[in-house]
Nucleic acid binder design. Structure first.
Lengths: 150, 150
DNA sequence: GTATAATTGATTTTGAATTTCAAAATCAAA
DNA sequence: TTTGATTTTGAAATTCAAAATCAATTATAC
């Protein structure tokens, strides 16, 4: 947490930006919340602690947090931009259930390796990547197989 | 092309929907255009041939085309939904340049295999997946290295 | 043909993302 | 301190693609 905060402070300094209490609070709550949050969701959480904070501040700070490399955007199928932080999480991909919206975080180092190789072949300098696999999760498949008795 | 049209007709029948000349035209132009199109872009192309067509029709038809499995959504970084058709294209992933927006279509069968294995391990029934790698393409890297002479 | 059900397209509405701008806060220099 | 330049904030407005609405039109089964 403090390590991540310092990372953020360093980033802000580099950009000639200041660490304000709002920015610190947005980062703090964001890191504490283990969810893939939209701007609005995070805003609603923070509003409870500090009713004076504005949506625009949350929006802007979340953007800074992403630029600082502390968060990544995730797309879980709805149209909203979701942010997930990396504090306590390594890079991972997503299996996303199209029935229930549930998602599973997965890592397959072999896939990562092959991706990097692929990019080298194209002389392509990777910054980040995103792999989303859409389908039906185990629970929903079971439900489909055994529909409600009547 | 005709094969794809038949696919679409079958899909429509299954849903109790009708094949209209508008729907046929939208599909036809969409398949002919080798681009990752937004609704608006496709609308503008079709409008030239048939000025009476409405944007809503293109929007709705594109959605049907996707539901029929003929197109997939692609996300090239801007916020707009882009559609790409599969006619003459196998499944592929994208390398997307964050400098110039250019993208490269790539396939790595080993990655596909590993993805499928991963899903089997999680008893996850794959419908589709999307892999986007963001970074800097070869051309832009060259430019960065040799900035304009002065 | 007629009934009925779906489709169309101009238009409006929605909603998330983003911008605007005046007020407030920050901070270095006087 | 006080000042002045600069940044930040937050309420509100704007933007713009996506989606919904609805009366008029069209396709299809009967």
């Amino acid at each position: 947490m403090d390590k991540t905060l310092n990372l953020f402070i360093d980033f802000l300094k580099k950009q000639n930006l200041k660490l304000t209490k709002q920015r610190e609070e947005v980062l703090g709550v964001f890191l504490k919340t283990e969810k893939h949050l939209t701007v609005e969701e995070l805003y609603n959480i923070i509003k409870k602690k500090d009713p004076h904070i504005g949506q625009a501040t949350v929006f802007r700070t979340l953007k800074l947090i992403r630029e600082a490399g502390i968060a990544t955007e995730a797309d879980l199928g709805d149209k909203k931009i979701r942010y997930e932080h990396r504090y306590g999480h390594k890079h991972h991909d997503h299996l996303i259930c199209i029935k229930c919206g549930r998602f599973i975080e997965v890592v397959e180092p072999e896939i990562e390796k092959l991706q990097n190789k692929l990019c080298r072949d194209f002389r392509f300098l990777v910054e980040r990547h995103r792999l989303e696999i859409f389908g039906v999760c185990q629970q929903c498949r079971r439900k489909d197989r055994r529909p409600k008795k009547r």
